[in-house]
Every structure is written in structure tokens, then in C-alpha cells.
């Protein structure tokens, strides 16, 4: 069978589908001071997943927490990678209490594209990954 670390090189998705892969990728991002991008990506997925079984109040609290931590501060690594229109859409949703499971989808896509085009290829060439293999 293909060893996991070879699968990680197939796509960002295969990497993020493996606990050890996530762990190593996060270590790399931490070194590059952009681990927040990965945390944000998972927070968006988690937010969407929780919708079915969580009450509205919890969803609102969570949406606010994600907004405050990753988007509000314009100098944050995540905030800098998200388009202004996407940020104001999310801000509007939070301010008007329009909480929707898909409200972070666009922002998540933008961060994912950024990782696919930038940090993921760098990770595959990094010492952290090469030493692991």
C-alpha cells in the first residue's frame, strides 16, 4: 500500500484527510507564522458541520468567535488573504445575526486557494516534510 506521506503529496485534500499529515503541515505553517490559516480552514468546516445538531445561540457564539479571532483584525494572516467583499459579507451576517451554515464558505475557499497555490507546494519542498519522508 502507498505510505501516507506519499499520499500527502497528491493533493492538499489528501494531506488534510490524515491526522499525521495535518500535524506535520501545521508545524510547518507555525514555523512560517501562518498556522492560523489552517485553524481557520478547519473552523469553517466545523462550523458548517455543526449546523444540524446545534442550537442557534451556539452557532451565533461560534460565528462571532471565528469572526473576532480571524477576520476582525485586518493585520491577521487570515484576514489579509480574504477579499474585502467577503469580509464585509461575513461582518454583515454577524451584525445582523443572519447566521447561516454557509456564511464562511467563500472565505474558506479563498484561504484554501491560497494554501493550494502557496503554502502547500512549499510544504512539499520543506525540510520538515523531506526529513519526515
Amino acid at each position: 500500500p502507498t505510505p501516507p506521506y506519499l499520499k500527502w503529496a497528491e493533493s492538499l485534500h489528501s494531506l488534510l484527510d490524515d491526522q499525521d499529515g495535518i500535524h506535520l503541515f501545521r508545524n510547518f505553517l507555525k514555523q512560517e507564522e501562518c498556522a492560523d490559516m489552517l485553524d481557520f480552514w478547519f473552523a469553517c468546516s466545523g462550523f458548517r458541520k455543526q449546523e444540524a445538531n446545534e442550537g442557534n445561540e451556539k452557532m451565533l457564539k461560534l460565528a462571532k468567535a471565528i469572526y473576532k479571532k480571524y477576520i476582525l483584525d485586518n493585520n491577521g494572516i487570515v484576514s489579509r488573504q480574504i477579499k474585502p467583499a467577503t469580509k464585509s459579507f461575513i461582518k454583515d451576517c454577524v451584525m445582523k445575526l443572519h447566521i447561516d451554515p454557509a456564511m464562511f464558505d467563500q472565505a474558506q475557499t479563498e484561504i484554501q486557494t491560497m494554501m493550494e497555490e502557496n503554502t502547500y507546494p512549499l510544504f512539499l519542498k520543506s525540510d520538515i516534510y523531506l526529513e519526515y519522508t
Binding site: 488534510l16 484527510d17 490524515d18 491526522q19 495535518i22 485553524d39 478547519f42 473552523a43 469553517c44 468546516s45 466545523g46 462550523f47 458541520k49 455543526q50 451556539k58 457564539k61 461560534l62 462571532k64 468567535a65 471565528i66 473576532k68 479571532k69
Partner: peptide, 20 residues
């Protein structure tokens, strides 16, 4: 503040793949 961080952490963990 703590509970907000906990909520966020719980949300992030819920999206991670489970150990195989």
C-alpha cells in the same frame, strides 16, 4: 474569553479526521 476559545477549539477538532 475562555469559553469562546474552548468553543472555537471544539469546532476545529470536530472538523479533523478521526484516527484510523
Amino acid at each position: 474569553i475562555d469559553s469562546e476559545d474552548d468553543l472555537l477549539q471544539e469546532c476545529i477538532s470536530s472538523a479533523m479526521p478521526k484516527k484510523k
